[in-house]
Nucleic acid binder design. Structure first.
Lengths: 230, 230
DNA sequence: GGTGATGGTTTAGTATACAAATGACTTCCC
DNA sequence: GGGAAGTCATTTGTATACTAAACCATCACC
């Protein structure tokens, strides 16, 4: 399996079933999609994938449905599935939507956060700083700290529907590739933005927090687009 | 089957498969949930529902997954499904999210709409006016015209991701119950808002269109909440 | 009398065989 | 030679039997 496939950097855990075969199929397929082994545009044939994952078609079907919901996979009218293709335009679209929803989330969270939550946010940010300052950069640890920060905000926002929507948008390839594109300086800037957002929340100032979050997500988009443009 | 269960008033057609049994199960279950026959909180047992729908468990599973994605059904950690319960707070939440996303959609649409689109919007609005002014109110026709207007905007916005997100939020019970709660005067006001939005789009003014849409959705929320409060 | 383990019962997950539908190719007719 | 229809291969949808896990009530032991 691809080394990155098991890295979990979503804010919301999606549906990691209790069951075994579905998860296995889901992780296996997502891994191969992210690694490019299953290239964009490839048709996903249930039987083929079942053989690949060593399970029957039933859990593969579930996995494909899940990946479809997460926009990794698109489905034609005649129910055939293909690996989704991501254009620069799509990235812009997703980041814009994420920006709106995360800004809303942090506004709600700012109005609800107690000292315990603020402490946890600060802890996540401290962890992130340590990873950035370390000599050898530990990507999974960075992603985990980043995810923790955003997950805390989403949790504090206390809106199931919002969480469900964001779960569809905060996707591995996007976050991951964005982080890859970051220089250490950019990572530090991202960290400092997190600290500022936590401060705004500690003040209980939704407007401030929301504005900071919008800028934070927007910067991530441009960091992601830069290597494509330059 | 409940008379309203087959009324389609989503902006996006969800997934109406080509297949037979899945659709049948989906429509049957959704119908029973909307009619209250399957009351909020009821556990959905696959075998039981299979018998109810006259199909096997397999398509029932698919239907439940779909209903879950549309927030009609919630699932516990241990993979048991229950009919979702809607509190006033949940309604507010959904309408707020819808407001944000639809305002964004109409902004995009306003920047892209050509005269053909404007003409179609006007046609949908004319149809709506006719229904409202008719002596006997034709609910399905009203819902269809309303859905058509919003669907056109969403289509013109040309964003798959956005459409996917809104597809989860624009739910039957919400829209339907909202319309039920409307008086004829409120329906006319809603119609006039549609006309204004179309005008803003014809002017190619995204800010105007967006602001109008926010207000439009917000008004729908309050129309929906009024009977609960009063 | 309460708390925690244990086994039966219920419910979801998986495999597999079969049916239906789609897509592509061939062939036949114009 | 072009088009349309039919046929075959491929792929998804459905049914069913079986497996595993979660729930619940009972009982034993503290």
């Amino acid at each position: 399996m691809h080394p990155l496939s098991a890295v979990e950097c979503r804010y919301v855990p999606g549906r990691f079933c209790v069951s075994k075969a579905s998860d296995q199929a889901y992780l296996e397929l997502r891994g191969r999609i992210l690694s490019g082994e299953l290239a964009p545009g490839t048709q996903l044939k249930e039987e083929e994938l079942a053989a690949l994952c060593g399970v029957s078609r039933t859990p593969v079907r579930a996995a494909i449905r899940q990946l479809e919901a997460e926009l990794f996979v698109r489905r034609t009218d005649s129910q055939r599935s293909f690996v989704a293709e991501w254009k620069a335009e799509d990235l812009e679209e997703v980041f814009t939507l994420r920006g709106m929803l995360e800004a809303y989330a942090v506004r709600r969270a700012a109005a609800r956060a107690d000292t315990a939550v603020i402490a946890e946010l600060n802890a996540a940010n401290e962890a992130m700083r340590k990873v950035i300052e370390a000599l050898d950069f530990d990507l999974p640890a960075y992603l985990a700290a980043n995810a923790r920060f955003h997950a805390l905000i989403l949790e504090t926002a206390a809106s199931d529907r919002l969480a469900a929507l964001l779960g569809k948008l905060v996707l591995q390839p996007v976050v991951q590739q964005t982080v890859r594109a970051y220089s250490r300086e950019q990572l530090m800037r991202s960290y400092r933005e997190h600290v500022e957002i936590a401060a705004a929340m500690a003040q209980g100032d939704p407007d401030w927090a929301g504005a900071l979050m919008t800028a934070h997500i927007r910067r991530a988009l441009h960091a992601r687009l830069e290597p494509l443009e330059g």
